[in-house]
Design a protein around this nucleic acid. Structure first.
Lengths: 108, 108
DNA sequence: TTCCATACCTAGCATAACTAGGCATTAGTC
DNA sequence: GACTAATGCCTAGTTATGCTAGGTATGGAA
């Protein structure tokens, strides 16, 4: 359903600051009011893809009294990619709005 | 990029009235200001899918002095499916907007 | 008669989200 | 102490679907 837009969502979730996978899932779920309740099998491979593409960097962290986590953060390339994704999303969603509303998009 | 939303777009393109495949492609291209310039290999299979799902009906027509065309029209199931898709799209795009804008969606 | 636009089709590819499992640790409860 | 739930990470394989790249054919214009 969100095919092609997951990357933008994950990147956006990391814009506020670094986070580990499990927390990213929670953030997305909360921020979208439950609309995006993503299974781990969706998010973890996406994180790996984005890291491999150079848009994210990761480091293992062990908080005191906690367990090892892999913390992801946006790289510079990730930031600029997010900008492009945002633009692409606006264009895309505007076009779909126009199609579905029969010519009426949201006001600018 | 438009994975999962193509069906809604095609259904919406047929809401104004029946049309044949080639014309649907042109309509989508024009209505989206060129954003959706869909190849035939995308649209024709989608039309077949939608017909098989009972959302579209088709009939071969031969306009005077023209060539055979396959004209598609919305079925009742197609109409109600379009309504559901529209609702789903609003929810979906609203959630993505919220994510990408850091909590700020378009005004209602 | 050659070329382009119209008009339809399909086999196979690529991608990406999801299913369905597995592993390990911590905290809380019975 | 045993058990359970929540946390936290992972991957192999399935599936859906849009797209590539081809094919066929007609009508009109150059």
């Amino acid at each position: 359903m969100l095919k092609g837009h997951l990357d933008a969502i994950v990147l956006a979730a990391l814009e506020a600051g670094p986070a580990h996978g499990y927390a990213i899932i929670e953030t997305i779920k909360t921020a979208s009011s439950g609309t995006f309740d993503l299974p781990e099998g969706t998010v973890y491979p996406a994180l790996h893809r984005l890291e491999q593409a150079g848009l994210l960097a990761s480091a293992w962290m062990t908080p005191p009294g906690g367990r090892k986590r892999r913390v992801y953060s946006l790289t510079k390339a990730g930031s600029s990619a997010l900008g492009e994704r945002r633009t692409a999303w606006r264009r895309f969603s505007g076009a779909v709005d126009t199609m579905l509303n029969g010519g009426q998009a949201w006001p600018a």
